[in-house]
Amino acid sequence: MSSKAPAETQGASRFTLDFRTLGPFVALALLMILGTMINATFISSANLTNVLTRSAFIGIIAVGATFVISAGGIDLSVGSMAAFISGVMIIAMNHFVNTVGVNWTTVMIGMGLSVALGLAAGLANGLVTTKGRIDSFIVTLGTMGIYRSLVTYLADGGTLSLSFQLRGIYRPVYYGSFLGIPIPLWAFFVVAVIGWIVLNKTRFGRYCLAIGSNADVAAYSAINVDRIRTLTYVVQGLCVAVATIIYVPRLGSASASTGVLWELEAIAAVIIGGTALKGGTSRLWGTVAGAIMLSMIGNILNLTDAISQYLNGAVQGVIIIVAVLVQRSGKGR
């Protein structure tokens, strides 16, 4: 019975906080207007398709990060994990080309392996955090280094490249489209919808928020805190695996520089979207808007020479902070 408490809190506040939920979308709309004013090419469907498709990797990973953060944790290992899974996928698929052949079966094996690795890596993060009673920041900082080194080792310091014939088969997963919308965007959309349902309409989702707002109270309410927390990392691992499946066909390669800083981008997308870094709230569609904004900022800067390239980082920083301010100002007093 007491486990219902957080759900009720959320239900009661849904209407009063509606404007806060809108904040990220207002910021996104402002950014799009700004982009169009800077260069009309921005709003062309070709450019928007590019930007949205690009945002799919960070976006899908950020959906997973929304689970981890709303339950009061953090996962810094996602970028390295994506690089590591890409590397293993490529090695495995190149190997199976010889035995299974150049066909979809080989690609499916690679995808299956990616999902298995993502789940296992997430489970490892979760178990070490909960059973080892170590802060998730430290655990995932450790695994971040481990995965990064492993991919460097696998690539022998160079770049792992997918066999050329196989790329021909796998390529449409990134470059292809269905009903005029690129496949990565469909994947992003489906992952976001599933994520929203799980987070808002299931007991697991409510437990995540309860633990994020107060883990002790949640434990007294007979919630198995360790299990739920571990599961959030598994969800995150699964999201990383899905992102990787879409990433690999883009350039068909993985190296030590793959996925660098993705973890910070994913966390930034979640926070811009309105989820609190300390946990206890979640705004999944806000996360989606946040991820799209992040890739739009880079795109807009590339479409103009009005701003010195040397200042790109500063402009990005200002826009991120302003975006969060827009969202906070909608909160009301």
Binding site: N39, T41, S44, A46, N47, N50, R54, T159, R250, L251, S253, S255, S257, T258, G298, N299, N302, L303, D305, Q309, N312
Partner: peptide
Amino acid sequence: LDWAYAYWNRDDGFEVMQDFLAR
């Protein structure tokens, strides 16, 4: 026409070039 940093890596090379091609 313009230049941009692509940080000696493939992903940035891809994204910067996409934007140049659009522009």
